[in-house]
Computed example of a mutant assay.
Amino acid sequence: MPEEKTKRASLKKRLRKKFENWAVKKHTELAQKSQVLRFRIFEKMYTQREDDIYVISSYHSGSAILRGLVYHLSSGGDTSFTNVKKVSPALLESVVEQDYLDQHPSPRVIFSPAAYEDFPPETKGKFIFLVRNGMDRGAAGYLFEKTVVNPDLEWMAYLQREFVNNARNWFVHSREWLENPYRRPMLVVSYEDMFQQPDQIIKRIATFLNLDLNEEQINTARQYLSMDFILSNRYMYDESPNPDKVYDQFIRRGKSDKGKEAFSDRQMKLYRRQFKKYLGKFNLPFEPK
């Protein structure tokens, strides 16, 4: 009898887990369809410009830092902005907030985490794709969601959603942008290089945007990739609902390759397998060993 009871409990647990995974998958699919629909609607609400600059990345990849730098460079050196979101609006959020892009002067620095296919082939402008070590990005994203959105979120459920079950998971999203089948004018920047090689990144962005920079301008721009500056001006970059409550719990440190500490051996094995399958051919600087 006790053995039968144990079997029933085990079966119930497996079925519950199966249902949870299915529910997460369906929720993600519906959210993606909603996002695509919103994008298509919003596409009609602003006029594209030839000099638009799109900063593309998954959330929790350092996009706010890159947006601040790109805006500073493309605006001719503006240092007066107090929040990145005001000078570099997020494309889909603008639908909700009625922050119409047509009000922003050219060149506009527009952020989006959208999938590659969400942008029609004829989209005007240039693209800067920011990619970050997936384990670091995963650990940061999980901590943010657990702190801000869902305190009951389990680490394994989050990993399954972000790296496996989701039809547009981090691996798929990254591969699509890195492959760039439409041959969009695009520059790839890694989060790691922003902090390890700031001058090189500044010059690469300047060259890509056809900007002529002197040494003084490079020195000024370098502060936007300085962790001391970022920490001293943290609310310039923060987009969380309640920065006073949240920020100190996962404040940016610019450290790379620390996310793996959150992964078990089994999770690391799964991550390596996914990485090899989707991103192995791109020779990224953070390929897992």
Rank of each mutant, 00 (worst) to 15 (best):
Y182N: 13
F127L: 11
P288D: 11
G280H: 02
V96S: 11
Y46Q: 01
G254P: 00
E122N: 12
Q274V: 05
N133I: 01
I251P: 00
I41V: 07
E176Q: 14
M186P: 00
L130T: 09
D136T: 07
D118V: 08
T79C: 10
F275Y: 14
K26W: 01
V246R: 02
K86A: 13
I251G: 01
V148W: 05
N169G: 04
D99W: 07
L37P: 00
N283P: 04
R14H: 05
S106W: 06
L270H: 09
E145I: 00
D212Y: 10
A90K: 03
S190Y: 03
Q249R: 14
K126T: 09
H104Y: 14
R67N: 10
D228G: 02
S226L: 08
N219I: 03
K86S: 12
N214A: 13
D238C: 14
L66S: 08
V246T: 06
E29F: 00
N133E: 11
K277G: 10
R184L: 14
K281T: 14
R252H: 08
R40I: 03
V55C: 04
F81Q: 10
Y71R: 05
N83L: 07
K203I: 15
T82F: 01
T123C: 02
F275G: 01
R175Y: 04
E50L: 13
K146S: 04
Q98A: 03
V96Q: 05
L159K: 03
S61Q: 03
R273W: 10
K13W: 05
K12Y: 01
T6I: 09
D193G: 03
A157G: 07
F42L: 12
A157M: 06
P243R: 15
R38S: 07
R168G: 00
A221W: 02
Q223V: 11
K289E: 09
Q160W: 10
S240G: 06
Y54V: 08
D248E: 12
K289G: 12
R184Q: 10
V70S: 02
R253I: 11
P241S: 13
L73S: 11
S57H: 04
I110E: 04
S57L: 08
S34N: 10
D52T: 02
G280E: 09
Y278Q: 13
